[in-house]
Design a protein around this nucleic acid. Structure first.
Lengths: 198, 198
DNA sequence: ATCACCATGTAAAAGGTTACATGATTTT
DNA sequence: AAAATCATGTAACCTTTTACATGGTGAT
């Protein structure tokens, strides 16, 4: 469970409100490597506060709910350090599109093509998004201190991840088109196969 | 929830026992794109059977528990097709190592280096593993029919994913070493920073 | 004898998603 | 006037993990 430790890590950099933390996950640095919903963030902050890992200062806002500015406590900082020195495992892959590999042939190739084109577009947008996050670091990548270098490295991983998806979509679209074209130029038995299920 | 549909997709290719399905996830094609434990597989198969999406034939085994050979039913096949034509979203990224980007500077760089070296090794092994899965398709990649092409494409995605991790680890190790070396050759103030938390 | 493999599950706890709930301020 | 942003949560449900549980066969 790294949600806890990701939140502690954010707060160890600077005190933030629940809203701010949720935004970090949705659009900020968190979007490179950890997804968490707004509800998860608020629930986890409440839990961490009860357990003494974080504390907050309530800031009265004119005409609004109090803003709770959270920071890590000594205990929370300690928990983060203990977690950091422990080895971590690669994340298990769970990718819906993978099912396509097993069963994509059961639907017309046009369905798969449309899906891959859609995915390509999503990843193109993600590339743009994560590249923006990297901008502050990319200007002098050779003189970063560790605090920034680590962030830069993780963001670079995210950029390449998204770029790889785009490249894969292109490769897949080309390969599928090639097979479809080949089958169209062959005797009708293959055509039947393609149309049976559509 | 693609566990259900991944299992249906496996069974639509060929009838399998729960043990076989679990093995597909752990070592077979499933290991490229969907992780599921043995317990999850058995629980899901029981549920799918109760809902009428799959059925099984019990094979008595001499001196062993009956083997239940599951297949998809008409209903299950239909559910799979309906799922396939619906657009799917990219998987949310959740990567423990990402927390390093936020808080890695709180521990000595040696800790991060050791962790990345460990990760590198794991991904090297995964590259070898997924390349083996690709072997049957990689021999004539230009004449595959769709049923095999889709599998080949997904496996290729998995290969590149693992290779990218290895490449990233190399890049990260080099970059960290460079910063550490630079700091060691600088006045003592930086050295102190490094040792404070160790 | 011990280990890997075959073959099946149950149950509790943790983690994550979806839907619901409220309301002011600022921007278009 | 409508939409986006700021700001907080609750509750039900679904999914995944971890731990437990059993027992025969075949290879070293």
């Amino acid at each position: 469970m790294a949600l806890k430790h990701t939140i502690l890590a954010f707060l160890s950099r600077q005190p933030l409100s629940g809203y701010d933390v949720a935004k970090e996950f949705a659009e900020g640095f968190g979007s490179c490597f950890w997804k968490a919903s707004q509800q998860q963030v608020y629930a986890e902050l409440t839990k961490l506060e009860q357990q003494g890992s974080v504390s907050y200062e309530a800031i009265p806002q004119p005409g609004r709910l109090d803003k709770k500015i959270y920071s890590t406590t000594e205990q929370g900082q300690q928990e983060l350090l203990e977690w950091l020195v422990k080895p971590c495992e690669p994340t298990a892959i769970r990718e819906d599109l993978g099912v396509m590999g097993l069963a994509g042939h059961l639907v017309p190739p046009q369905v798969m093509v449309r899906e891959i084109e859609r995915r390509r577009q999503l990843h193109v947008e993600m590339v743009q998004h994560v590249k923006k996050l990297d901008a502050p670091f990319a200007q002098h990548p050779d003189s970063l201190e560790l605090k920034d270098l680590y962030m830069h490295l993780i963001i670079r991983r995210a950029i390449r991840y998204q770029e790889e998806w785009v490249a894969w979509c292109d490769e897949a679209l080309q390969a599928i088109e090639q097979v479809v074209t080949r089958q169209e130029s062959e005797p009708s038995s293959h055509k039947h196969n393609l149309n049976e299920q559509g």
